[in-house]
């Protein structure tokens, strides 16, 4: 009986993991397959779909998405750090209510936020903001709560005695922020920014309302194309953007060292 149960457990675990990885493997295989029929034999594989990506049709949306994601992650990082600082470090009165307000966009589905922003921009006569500026603003609203929460968590985890130690050693408030607080919460700030980057780069539900011709993000370009065809070039686009995201995470990790935080040590 026990053996049967544990056998069932391992089989179900393997099946679930297969379920999780299957679509990813299929997409990678499709991106390398010569025709629209997916093949898993490496002998037939080709890079031609990747070569086809080097065209403004795909490059322009990619550059736009990357540009927006970089701006969004920087702005969310700075705004999130400011909010988290006031709440978690200064512990200003009412900090819990303030945190709840900063996190409130999380309670609203993205599609609802999208409708609200598109109605706001259109009826407030801000048509000019549709496209890139609107995308940036909407993505900031989306990612700011995540960044604020992550940075606030790392400030809460920051040992207040270190601040007092610096203080008794004669460090002014700015010196303490610059030499003690910031270096120690840097991993939190960078993981917040990485999160913001990924969410912005992959976003569909907000972007779908805000793109305009010539200012279309990569995921929206892909889903528009998918309406007509499931061409393997789409697989190549998807794999390429996944690689781009992984490279970005790697870069942010190098700069901010947030995996050290996850593993519970610094340096």
């Amino acid at each position: 009986m026990n053996r049967l149960l544990s056998g069932l457990f391992w089989i179900s675990l393997c099946l679930i993991l297969a379920f999780i990885t299957l679509p990813l493997l299929v997409v990678v295989a499709a991106s390398l397959s010569p025709s629209s029929t997916v093949t898993f034999s490496p002998a037939d594989w080709t890079m031609k779909w990747y070569a086809a990506l080097w065209a403004s049709k795909w490059l322009d949306p990619f550059i736009l998405s990357a540009k927006i994601a970089v701006i969004v992650s920087l702005v969310s990082g700075v705004l999130g750090a400011l909010g988290a600082y006031a709440i978690a470090y200064e512990k200003c009165p009412g900090s819990e209510a303030i945190m709840a307000f900063l996190l409130s966009p999380l309670a609203v589905p993205q599609i609802v936020k999208g409708v609200a922003i598109v109605i706001f921009l259109s009826s407030a006569g801000l048509y000019a903001l549709l496209g890139t500026p609107g995308l940036i603003a909407a993505h900031i609203v989306l990612t700011l709560p995540f960044a604020a929460r992550m940075i606030a968590t790392s400030i809460y985890n920051f040992d207040k005695n270190l601040d007092r130690a610096a203080q008794i050693l004669g460090a002014s408030k700015w010196q303490r922020i610059r030499h003690v607080l910031l270096p120690l919460i840097k991993p939190g700030v960078f993981s917040g920014m990485t999160f913001a980057f990924i969410i912005s780069f992959n976003n569909i539900p907000l972007s779908v309302f805000l793109v305009r011709p010539g200012q279309t993000t990569l995921p929206i370009t892909v889903i528009n194309y998918m309406e007509y065809s499931l061409d393997p070039v789409l697989a190549a686009v998807n794999v390429a953007s996944l690689i781009f995201i992984l490279a970005t995470i790697f870069l942010f990790e190098k700069l901010g060292g947030f995996s050290a935080q996850i593993h519970g040590g610094s340096k």
Partner: peptide, 19 residues
Amino acid sequence: PLFPPFAVLLLFFAVPIGM
């Protein structure tokens, strides 16, 4: 320090939801 994040959330979240 709360002014900038609040301003962004008010303008692009609270006001749009209200509208």
